[in-house]
Design a binder for these strands. Structure first.
Lengths: 243, 243
DNA sequence: CATGGCGCTTGATTAATGTCAAAGACTCCG
DNA sequence: CGGAGTCTTTGACATTAATCAAGCGCCATG
């Protein structure tokens, strides 16, 4: 391990680290070979857009490494980050299954590599491989639950509460240091994108961060956050104004 | 037709009017018989709750007639109507597939009849009937798109715009009279529930209705609405404040 | 080193929506 | 018919978050 300096350029589904976490983990060797032959692998850099909303869907994207943001921009130019995607996640299955254009954009937030799998290949695999369909069904249902929760939060919780919740979610993946109720984390997002995740303006994000500072809930320094008492985030998120 | 006074009490999947619109339309005769034998049919009246959030999921519900509201109530008592379900819709598949408790309640809004299909039956059908899985996958993906749009609207649009959109959606199903850009419709919901659909307070709903009256966009009388110019609803929904 | 762009912060102000309270309207039931 | 309870409307007010505008800091680039 220590000797390898860089990953192989030509990635291979059989040895893909992320595959265990993907919908493709249920494929048998033959199918895996088919997908391996059909896929196109490629490196991607921050800022790059894998597909834009409105683009025709030509297949799906499988993330091998890096981080992708799912973004939607409305007619007025409001940018909302609907979600973050990580190695093992499959993107664009919605548009493919509905046989319509992409409704969202997929934008690279951290450099990494992705594989593109053509529409025909996916359809064919889905058709004769029921358990693959089940995996996608499971995935869609999970995403659906999360989407409904986001709607619910956006209409019932204040910005403070939503931001506290966002930090709690990011904590699970980005906590760098945990000790007895206190945590440090390294945010993967700019302030603008943090704002876009909970559907608020950058100015409001800035002010909310300031409030958390003033209230001693969290200390922000660049993208590093220190939370002395995780419970205080939970308080913000859950109690709201406990009557 | 004219002679029949009431529907038969014992409903039957083979003759079910709603089946064509359900996920079950892909079943062959054998499977249809299985489900027909396994299901329990029952009448339901407004106010009745088919399942509460937090209940264990014992199976799914298939709507034969009537209207069901999908409701979620948060810790502070805020009630949000996540959606409306109609004949042909299948409810509770989320909890069943995720093998967890119901996260929402299903509440009867208009009297009708539903069929309950046990968990074991559904799983068994899903397991050996791939096209049924595909139907559910398609359904989940569609619901997912709608849920994301609701989130998006809630964070980018004003209450006016969201209400205009709600009216446009309800129009498709409840328009009683359409003529040259003007419509009448009979709302299926109380003001409270209209408010709950877009995540606002009843008072705000009342005021928004008042605004629409004052602006000549729509005339409300009880649950009857008259919209002289449909385009005015579209203006509210789309342009927002066209810059 | 200078410069321009972009992201972030802050302040002042405004607009939108929630909250609280009260009164009317309607419905169901005895 | 009466009355309780719920739904709806309205008013006054508080609060939240968006908007507009300015300034600062950082970084890339010439």
């Amino acid at each position: 391990m220590a000797g390898r300096s860089s990953p192989p350029i030509l990635t291979d589904c059989f040895s893909c680290q992320a595959r265990q976490r993907t919908e493709w983990c249920v494929l048998n060797e033959d199918d895996l070979k088919r997908i391996n032959d059909a896929k196109k692998s490629r490196q991607c850099l921050p800022g790059e857009v894998l597909y834009h909303q409105g683009d025709a869907c030509r297949g799906i994207v499988c993330i091998e490494s890096g981080m992708i943001g799912i973004r939607k921009i409305d007619a007025d130019g409001n940018s909302v980050l609907l979600g973050l995607a990580y190695p093992g996640d499959t993107l664009g299955y919605r548009a493919l299954l509905m046989a319509q254009d992409h409704e969202v954009s997929a934008e690279v937030l951290k450099k990494g590599s992705v594989c593109l799998i053509g529409e025909a290949t996916v359809r064919s695999l889905l058709d004769h491989n029921p358990s693959l369909g089940h995996r996608f069904l499971w995935r869609a249902v999970k995403d659906l639950g999360e989407a409904e929760n986001k709607f619910l939060e956006s209409v019932t919780l204040t910005v403070r509460a939503r931001f506290a919740h966002l930090l709690l979610i990011l904590k699970d993946r980005y906590a760098t240091d945990v000790e007895d109720g206190a945590i440090s984390l390294e945010l993967p997002l700019s302030r603008q994108d943090l704002a876009a995740m909970i559907g608020i303006r950058p100015e409001t994000m800035s002010r909310t961060i300031r409030q958390f500072e003033d209230d001693g809930i969290a200390h922000f320094s660049g993208r590093t956050v220190h939370v002395p008492r995780i419970a205080s985030l939970l308080d913000e998120f859950e109690h709201e104004d406990y009557l």
